[in-house]
Design a protein around this nucleic acid. Structure first.
Length: 578
RNA sequence: CGGGAUGUAGCGCAGCCUGGUAGCGCGCUUGACUGGGGGUCAAGAAGUCGCAGGUUCAAAUCCUGUCAUCCCGACCA
C-alpha cells in the first residue's frame, strides 16, 4: 500500500480527551477515530491490526477443533426472557422494538450469544453421537456501558471472538476446556502479548472452572494477585489470601479496655487522624444482612471485605450491606461506631482480626470508640475465615511467598458453563440408554480489539507504538526521502514491488513530505522494520534498514535489501510462533 | 446513576473575571526556495464561540436550562 492512497491521519498533538496511552497513541497514529462515547471507527491501520489478530485467532480455533459460523447480532428478546437474563443484563442490554406491519417485535442487539447458539444447537443436536462440538464466531457485540472509558479499552460496541462447546460428559467438557485454554495461550503469545492466566469466579461447576487471561497494565480495570514463585494468579475477587486460622487468645501485653470520645469521627480514616493511629490497628466492623439476618463482619482496618467470600463463609444466598436504620437497631449506634465488644448479633471475623493487639473499634455508641480491644477478653470468636480481598504482600496459598498485586486488562475468558442455558432452552441429547440429558456447555471469549488496544497500551516508547510483527498493520515501511528524484523512486519502487512479491506486508511512504516528518510518523505508527532510500545511500548503492526498536540503521546494498528484510521478518515471526 | 471538569477553525489553546471588530501555534491551500529527524518566505481558505432561552442598545463573555465529551466512584452476563 502507498501512504498517499490510504487514510492515515497522524497527529502531532495529543487530543485533550485522551488520557490512557493506548487511546492517545491509537488516535495519534491514525488507527482509530471516535464517533461518540464508546463507539470508534477503525481506520485502515487499526483495522489491519484487528484483522491480523482475528486471523491468528481463526487459525488457533480451527487447530483446537472449533468451527466457525456467524450468528445474527439482532436477537429476539424472547430468548433472553427464557434464560432470565433480560433482568441480569438490565440496562446493559440494548433493546428496542422493530415495526412489522401493525405489530412491534421486541429485539436486542446481542451482548453475547449463549442464547442464540443454544437455541441453534437445541434444534440440531439430539444424540450423544453428535458430541462433542465446538463452534465459534468473530462478531460485533453490543453492551450499553453506563460509562464507556479508557478509549477503545471499554466500549459499547466491540469485536469479540466467542466460542461455545457442547459436551455429553464432564470429561468431554474438560478436554475441550483444556484445548481452548492452550489455544488461548498460543493466540496471545503469537500476538506478542504479555499475559497472565488467572483463576476467576467459577460459577456453577466450581473448582478450576473459569480462567481469565489478563494483560498486566497500570490502566487495567481488573486487579489480580500473583506469585512469581508458584505461578499462582487469581482475580482479586477470588484470590485466596494464604492466611491460616490463628490461635485465638488474649495477648499477654493486653492493655486496659478504654472508652474514648470520638465526636463525629466515624470513618476509619477520620478515627486514625483523630486518635493518631494506623488503620491496621483498627477493627472494621461491617453490618451485613445475610438472607435478611444481620451479621457483623470484622476485618482489619486497612483491609477490604470480600462479599463473595463472606457469602460462602455464611452459606448465605443473599448478602447486602445493612442500611443505616438496621445498623442503628443492631448496634445501638449510627453508622461508623460499630464494634465487636458487646455486640448481640452473629459475628464472623477475618483471620487477621484476632491478631490485632490493643485494637481500636467502635463502641456501639454514638461518638465513642474503644481502645485496648483484645480478642477473648473483650469479644469472642469461635473461628476465623478468609473474608477479605487479598492485598499486596499476602502470602501465596501455594508457595507462601509474598504475592504481587497488579492491574490487568482482561483479553480472554474461558468458562465452564454447565447446563444453565441448555436446561432453560432445552438443548438436550439422548444417551446410549435413550435417556435425555441437558448438553454440558462451555464458553470462551476473546476481546479481539482489546488485543490491539492492549498492545498499544503496553508496547510503546516516547516516540510511538512498538508493534510485534504479527499484529503490526504493515511489517515493513519504505521511506524514499525525495519523491521527485526519479532514480531514488525507482530504487524504492523496485524494493516495494519485490517485497510484495515475497508476501511481505509493506507500506510505502510516498508522501512528498520532508524527511523529519516521515521519520517521526514512522516511529509513531511503529511499523517493525523501516527501509530508508535516500540520496546519500544511493550514491554508495545502499539503503538503510532499521528495526523500530533499534537505535541505529544498518546499510544494506540495494540488491540485498529484499533478502535481508525478508529474513528479518520471517525470523521475527518465527520467534513469536515458537 | 452520584461527584468533578471541559465545550472557541481539523488538533492544541488564549480571549470570559471587567459585555463593544473572534485571536495564537500546528495542520490545510497556492507559489517560490529547500530537502537525512516535525523547514523558510509570501499569499490565502476555514469558526452560527456545543445548543436553547433570558438579561442588555449590544453576549464567546453575565444568568437559566439543556446536550455532549473526559475523569473519579457505583455498575459491568
Amino acid at each position: 500500500m502507498r501512504w498517499t492512497q490510504s487514510l492515515i491521519p497522524t497527529m502531532k498533538e495529543t487530543p485533550a480527551d485522551a488520557e490512557v496511552p493506548s487511546h492517545q497513541l491509537m488516535l495519534r497514529a491514525g488507527l482509530i477515530r471516535q464517533l461518540m462515547a464508546g463507539a470508534y471507527t477503525y481506520l485502515p491501520l487499526g483495522w489491519r491490526s484487528v484483522q491480523k489478530a482475528a486471523a491468528i485467532i481463526r487459525e488457533e480455533m480451527e487447530r483446537a477443533g472449533a468451527c466457525e459460523l456467524h450468528m445474527p447480532a439482532l436477537q429476539p428478546i424472547e430468548l433472553f426472557e427464557r434464560t432470565g437474563r433480560i433482568n441480569a443484563f438490565g440496562s446493559v442490554l440494548m433493546k428496542f422494538d422493530v415495526p412489522r406491519g401493525d405489530r412491534k417485535v421486541p429485539v436486542a442487539l446481542g451482548p453475547t450469544h449463549e442464547e442464540v447458539v443454544t437455541d441453534l444447537i437445541s434444534r440440531h443436536i439430539s444424540s450423544y453421537r453428535q458430541l462433542p462440538l465446538t463452534v465459534y464466531q468473530i462478531q460485533t457485540k453490543f453492551r450499553n456501558e453506563e460509562r464507556p472509558r479508557f478509549g477503545v479499552l471499554r466500549t459499547s460496541e466491540f469485536l469479540m471472538k466467542d466460542a461455545y462447546s457442547f459436551a455429553s460428559s464432564l470429561e468431554q467438557l474438560n478436554t475441550t476446556y483444556d484445548a481452548m485454554y492452550d489455544a488461548y495461550c498460543r493466540i496471545f503469545k503469537r500476538c506478542g502479548l504479555e499475559f497472565i492466566p488467572v483463576e476467576a469466579e467459577s460459577g456453577p461447576i466450581g473448582g478450576d472452572a473459569s480462567h481469565e487471561f489478563m494483560i498486566p497494565a497500570d490502566n487495567g480495570e481488573d486487579q489480580i494477585v500473583y506469585c512469581k514463585k508458584s505461578g499462582y494468579a487469581a482475580n482479586l475477587e477470588r484470590a485466596e489470601t494464604g492466611r491460616k486460622a490463628p490461635e485465638i487468645s488474649t495477648p499477654a501485653d493486653a492493655a486496659e479496655l478504654q472508652k474514648v470520645d470520638t465526636p463525629n469521627v466515624g470513618s476509619i480514616e477520620a478515627v486514625c487522624g483523630f486518635l493518631k493511629c494506623q488503620p491496621e490497628q483498627m477493627i472494621k466492623t461491617l453490618i451485613y444482612l445475610a438472607d435478611e439476618k444481620p451479621v457483623a463482619v470484622l476485618v482489619r482496618g486497612d483491609h477490604e471485605a470480600n462479599e463473595g467470600k463472606i457469602r460462602r463463609a455464611l452459606g448465605a444466598d443473599s448478602l447486602e450491606l445493612a442500611d443505616p436504620e438496621t445498623i442503628q437497631k443492631v448496634t445501638g449506634a449510627p453508622v461508623g461506631f460499630a464494634g465487636p465488644v458487646g455486640l448481640e448479633c452473629q459475628v464472623i471475623a477475618d483471620h487477621d482480626v484476632p491478631a490485632i493487639a490493643n485494637a481500636i473499634a467502635g463502641a456501639n455508641a454514638a461518638d465513642q470508640h474503644y481502645t485496648g480491644v483484645n480478642v477473648d477478653r473483650d469479644y469472642q470468636l469461635d473461628q476465623t475465615h478468609d473474608l477479605r480481598n487479598a492485598a499486596a504482600g499476602d502470602p501465596c496459598p501455594k508457595s507462601g511467598e509474598p504475592m504481587d498485586l497488579v492491574h490487568g486488562i482482561e483479553v480472554g475468558h474461558v468458562f465452564k458453563l454447565g447446563t444453565k442455558y441448555s436446561e432453560s432452552l432445552s438443548a438436550m441429547y439422548l444417551d446410549e440408554h435413550e435417556k435425555r440429558h441437558p448438553i454440558i456447555m462451555g464458553c470462551y471469549g476473546i476481546g479481539v480489539n482489546r488485543i490491539v488496544a492492549g498492545l498499544a497500551e503496553t508496547r510503546h516508547d516516547d516516540k510511538g507504538l512498538l508493534w510485534p510483527i504479527s499484529i503490526a498493520p504493515y511489517e515493513v515501511l519504505i521511506i524514499p526521502l525525495k519523491t521527485d528524484d526519479e532514480e531514488l523512486m525507482s530504487a524504492a519502487n523496485s524494493i516495494y514491488a519485490e517485497l510484495k512479491e515475497q508476501g511481505i506486508d509493506v507500506l510505502m511512504d510516498d508522501r512528498s513530505a520532508r524527511p523529519g516528518v516521515k521519520f517521526n510518523d514512522a516511529d509513531l505508527i511503529g511499523i517493525p522494520y523501516r527501509i530508508v532510500v535516500g540520496g546519500k545511500g544511493l550514491k554508495e548503492g545502499v539503503a538503510e534498514v532499521k528495526a523500530r526498536t533499534d537505535a541505529d540503521a544498518e546499510k544494506v546494498p540495494l540488491d540485498q535489501v529484499v533478502a535481508n528484510v525478508t529474513s528479518l521478518v520471517s525470523a521475527a515471526k518465527e520467534a513469536l510462533n515458537a
